[in-house]
């Protein structure tokens, strides 16, 4: 299981995208799953290759970066009180109003592919995403997502 309870934050409020990504990515460094270079790599990559995605009534982001900044594979989730502007993946500059950030630390995609496939299903499950966003604790987020991400 790549989703970790200690990489879930709920009800966060950040002034902008860069602050949000950097602060949340710092947690991955603190937990020892990513190298100190990870937060900046996440911020830089989001600028070049945006990861915002439409997901029904609100948008989500699927932030990640090159595996060289990753120590061990993990998935974190950060829910936001106020939506933050991202751009849509695919590069046409469409503005996204992100309310959940899924942050991935991926080491070797081939060995984590079944989880990535399941995550893709989660991103398309509007009801589940609403449940995640409404959750008031990391435990609630974890319990909501776990059945959908278990491999």
């Amino acid at each position: 299981m790549l989703l970790r309870k200690d990489l879930i934050k709920v009800g966060q409020d950040y002034p902008d995208r860069e602050t949000a990504l950097h602060s949340f990515a710092e947690l991955f460094v603190e937990r020892g799953v990513a190298k100190p270079s990870y937060p900046q790599a996440i911020v830089d990559r989001e600028k070049i290759y945006p990861t915002g995605l439409p997901a029904g009534s609100f948008d989500i982001a699927l932030s990640h970066c090159d595996s060289e900044h990753v120590i061990e594979p993990a998935i974190g989730v950060c829910t936001l009180v106020n939506p933050i502007d991202f751009q849509m993946m695919g590069g046409d500059g469409t503005a996204m109003h992100v309310k959940i950030i899924f942050m991935l630390a991926i080491k070797d995609p081939d060995s984590q592919i079944s989880t990535l496939q399941k995550l893709m299903g989660v991103l398309q499950n509007e009801g589940l995403l609403e449940e995640v966003h409404a959750a008031s604790s990391p435990e609630e987020v974890y319990d909501a997502l776990k059945p959908y991400l278990d491999v």
Binding site: R45, C65, S67, P109, I113, L116, Q117
Partner: peptide, 16 residues
């Protein structure tokens, strides 16, 4: 093809 050539492209490839 995706930005990193790793995560999203693998998800897409497996779906295909």
């Amino acid at each position: 093809v995706c930005g990193s050539g790793v995560v999203t492209s693998h998800m897409v490839a497996n779906k295909i």
